[in-house]
Every structure is written in C-alpha cells, then in structure tokens.
Amino acid sequence: FPNGTLAPRMALNVPNFKDGTWTTFTGPDGKTWMKTTYYLRKGVKWSDGVPVNYEQDIKFAVYDIYLSGKIEQIPSTDPYDKIDKIEFPNPYTMVVTWKDTTPYANAGLPIYPKHFWSQVPLEQITSSDLAKKPIHAGPYKIEQWVEGSYISLVPNPNWFGWAGSKPLIQRFVYQWIPDTNTMLMNVLAGKVDLTLIGLGIKEAQQAEKIPTIKVQRIPSTFWEHLEINTTDPILSD
C-alpha cells in the first residue's frame, strides 16, 4: 500500500508476532533465529494457465534464481541468504526458518514458474527469448514487447483477483520516451495518458497550465540521497 503497509497477495496473511506467525528463538549457533509462517492462496494459476506449485516454484526462485550464483544480474541475495530452510507441512502452508534476524522476513519470498524458466539453463535466462515473454500471476499479461519502444499489457484471464475483481482497463501500453521534451510534447498532444517519472519540474509546471492536464504530487515510500565518495582524497577525512 502507498503508506508502506504490507498486504498479502498470493498469500493470505502477513506474518506478525501478534498471532504467532512470526517468532524468534535461539538457534544452534547461539544467535537469534526466526520462523515465519505463510498461509497460501488456493487456485492460483500462472498467466499461461498452469497451476502454481508453491513449493516447487518458491524453492526454484530462492535457491536456483537468487542463491545459485549462476545469474549475474541478481543485484543482491539479501535477505534470502539468511534462510536456513523452507518447509511445506502441506501444499498451502509455508514455514521459513531464518538463521539470522531481518526486518524483511514478513515481506514474503520470490516465486517464479519453474516449468517455464527451466526450459533454458540458468545462465541463459536473461539472454533467452523467454525473458521477453515472461509469465506471472498478476492481473495483466504481456501482449507484445518491442525492445526500447513499448510493452503492451492485456488482462490475464487466469488472474485469481481479489473478492472476484477483474482488471478494468483492457489494454496498457508502456512507452519509453527518454527525452523529456519529447515526452512533454506527447503529453500536450494527448498521446500519453499518464507519465510516472520523467518530466522535470519545469516541464511539469508547463504541462500544468493546460486545463485538461493534472499534475499530482504524492508522498511516497521512495527516497533519494547523496552518497559521499570517501575514497576521494578531498573527502577522505
């Protein structure tokens, strides 16, 4: 949610201390370990119609995708490298044992469709044709991907939804417009319905003068910062 509160999607709960689905204990190394329990949604399918196999697909994502070391593009293994084991007492209950403490333990684990990505060796996943037509379990699926130009999305008929809800918009087109002036011209001409990031302050102020254009300033959980290069002699003190 926009305020940073976690909400379950493919799971039915967010682990927490109050109901005992997030606990701590002393591990065999004498350090504080943790356990998180997730109750998983039934009837979930990938966008190609194949049923989600939670144990297979989550373990594939954690151990093969993130922790195998075979995919160079993985930026970080944290917090998954703190996992001791992932257990499934039944197909819709997952218990994760953590060999260290981490505030991200209740954020869930990654999940990837093993039946899809295992068609190619792990080392070739990001360079294979599969990378441009991925499947997932969200409300939309990729219709077409023209690299460097646009991605179009259409409703995923296999989406589990929430309380029977269905996608309302029948087609999304995400365009890459690297030049801010070109983006502004597209906005002013009505060719772009929404820009997420890209217009600078000056362009946004110019667009705001048009009655049909609304500029929104919304507080968010994103943050920006400056990094000090302390290896530079000028800043090394």
Results as ranks from 00 to 15, higher is better:
121 P>K: 09
95 V>D: 11
134 P>A: 07
123 E>C: 03
137 A>M: 12
124 Q>C: 01
141 K>H: 05
116 F>L: 10
98 W>D: 09
105 A>S: 15
91 P>D: 11
119 Q>F: 10
121 P>Q: 10
132 K>Q: 06
105 A>T: 04
85 K>H: 14
140 Y>R: 07
135 I>R: 02
110 P>I: 08
95 V>Y: 11
104 Y>T: 13
103 P>F: 14
122 L>R: 15
119 Q>V: 07
99 K>E: 05
124 Q>D: 14
104 Y>P: 00
88 F>I: 05
106 N>W: 02
98 W>Q: 07
85 K>C: 03
107 A>H: 14
98 W>H: 11
92 Y>S: 02
114 K>L: 00
134 P>I: 05
103 P>W: 13
123 E>K: 15
97 T>G: 09
102 T>C: 10
114 K>Y: 03
107 A>Y: 10
101 T>M: 14
87 E>F: 02
92 Y>M: 03
106 N>F: 09
101 T>Q: 14
108 G>D: 08
103 P>S: 15
115 H>Y: 14
105 A>M: 14
139 P>E: 10
123 E>I: 14
130 L>K: 12
114 K>P: 06
141 K>A: 06
103 P>R: 04
125 I>M: 14
96 V>K: 00
133 K>V: 06
121 P>I: 09
99 K>R: 14
111 I>G: 01
86 I>F: 12
99 K>W: 10
141 K>T: 11
96 V>A: 12
104 Y>A: 15
118 S>C: 04
109 L>W: 07
131 A>C: 03
85 K>R: 15
88 F>K: 02
124 Q>Y: 08
107 A>K: 10
112 Y>W: 07
142 I>N: 00
127 S>Y: 04
132 K>G: 11
95 V>T: 12
132 K>R: 14
135 I>Y: 01
127 S>V: 14
124 Q>H: 07
133 K>Q: 11
118 S>H: 04
93 T>L: 09
138 G>K: 05
134 P>K: 12
122 L>T: 13
95 V>P: 09
134 P>Y: 03
131 A>N: 06
137 A>H: 12
124 Q>G: 00
116 F>I: 12
99 K>S: 12
111 I>K: 02
128 S>E: 01
85 K>L: 06
125 I>E: 01
103 P>C: 11
106 N>M: 07
87 E>N: 12
86 I>H: 12
134 P>V: 06
141 K>C: 08
108 G>W: 01
86 I>S: 08
130 L>M: 14
94 M>N: 02
